[in-house]
Design a protein around this nucleic acid. Structure first.
Lengths: 224, 224
DNA sequence: TCTAAAATGATACGACTGGATATAAAATAA
DNA sequence: TTATTTTATATCCAGTCGTATCATTTTAGA
């Protein structure tokens, strides 16, 4: 039965869990610290969430919900947009979310370093479906000339998301090394601009793939 | 005094520490597990390395040594190369190293998620000097036309290294989600090709920044 | 106001942690 | 050989971990 108080304690625990798991990962976080941050007795975790593992899963599901909301919030207007504008819109929303909630990327990173039951759960429920759709969208955008098409969609996807969120993952390092706060609004917008410039094909190249008839954009094959 | 046996136990511990810290981070690793993997008594860690912290630092220093070696191994020939060839060479070596020793990136990632004494040590001794030089090299390459020059060097640098190593950091996830082993030689070379294509400016654009006199490559300013 | 359910709090337990110590074994030097 | 130093092993310790138990308080419905 919902009492109001129950929801409050639950959500306080969830919020504290997101912060702690985001900073120290599953292994590095103690439920006692979460309870302390939430200002509740640590026994409550066993009551509201049956275990540390369940609390972790709840935190992940909560963050993925926010991600979905953030990336698709303008979806209704996508029909009116060009393929290029759609990519710019979703990429911008994704980067803004990565800046607002770096915890999700961090939690996933902690788990993706080694095999575990948590990684299995994470992959089945979130990563595989999410990444499959994302790679399909990248492949489509390649066909539409928004991205270069001489690179496998999978590599392009992983470069894209890495480019988008890496700088926020490494925020404490950048702050310490160069005294730059990447979470400043100016920095975020600058980063969005940079990532879009770097990952997308120049706008004029879309309708005329080979302006001079040669393949001058694609002569990297001798690199490896 | 070196006895051979001493070095052997030390290096066995160091190797096991690299693997464990690379998988589970500092907090998630126990010295007992390291000793077990190394096949030695866990008391030896206290003898050869004064503490878990010192062992971690030794592992990091060891990996940074390997990185430096890998990236600069062709440095003698850089003089004979064009700026573009130098970038291709060092980027290729960096990506190959990231594939061979993903542990370094992983260990750094674990620490860069939150403030700590280890992050301070890491930043002062390795990250700041390494990154400063890398960003300076990126800025130079931008002037030389190897990279686009309408993006801040810092953002470009972090996009570059993220693009290079992210796929190897997430190897367990990619293996699980798509059954692809990114450490296969073919995959590594494919990734090198993709990253170079995506991060570098098209080769023909170097000596003629604006073939038709307009700035068609740089009209992203309206994005943000 | 009374009762049952829901929620919280206090405490305890066994397992594991990093580190310390004391001793045994091995290697070296004389 | 013997004496000395170096290396390895076996326990021990105090603290923390996740979680289980149980008493207490709070809440909701009658």
């Amino acid at each position: 039965m919902e009492t109001g108080l129950e929801l409050d304690t639950r959500s306080k625990l969830l919020k504290a869990a997101v912060v702690q798991f985001g900073k120290f990962g599953f292994a590095g976080t103690s439920v006692r610290k979460i309870a302390e941050d939430a200002g509740v007795n640590h026994g409550s975790i066993k009551y509201h969430y049956s275990s540390k593992d369940d609390l972790w899963r709840a935190a992940v599901a909560y963050l993925y919900g926010l991600l979905d909301e953030a990336v698709h919030k303008d979806e209704a207007e996508w029909k009116k947009m060009s393929p290029r504008e759609q990519i710019i819109n979703s990429a911008t929303n994704f980067i803004r979310f990565s800046a607002k909630h770096p915890e999700l990327s961090r939690i996933v990173f902690f788990e993706t370093m080694h095999e575990s039951e948590r990684l299995e759960w994470l992959t089945e429920n979130f990563i595989r479906p999410y990444t499959s759709r994302a790679i399909a969208r990248v492949a489509l955008a390649q066909e539409q000339g928004v991205y270069v098409d001489d690179v496998p969609a999978m590599n392009l996807h992983y470069v894209n998301i890495a480019a988008a969120k890496n700088i926020f993952l490494m925020a404490p390092e950048i702050k310490r090394a160069f005294d730059i706060d990447v979470f400043d609004d100016d920095q975020i917008e600058q980063h969005i601009d940079a990532v879009l410039k770097l990952t997308m094909r120049p706008e004029n190249a879309e309708e005329k793939p080979s302006p001079d008839g040669t393949d001058t954009d694609k002569n990297f094959s001798n690199v490896t």
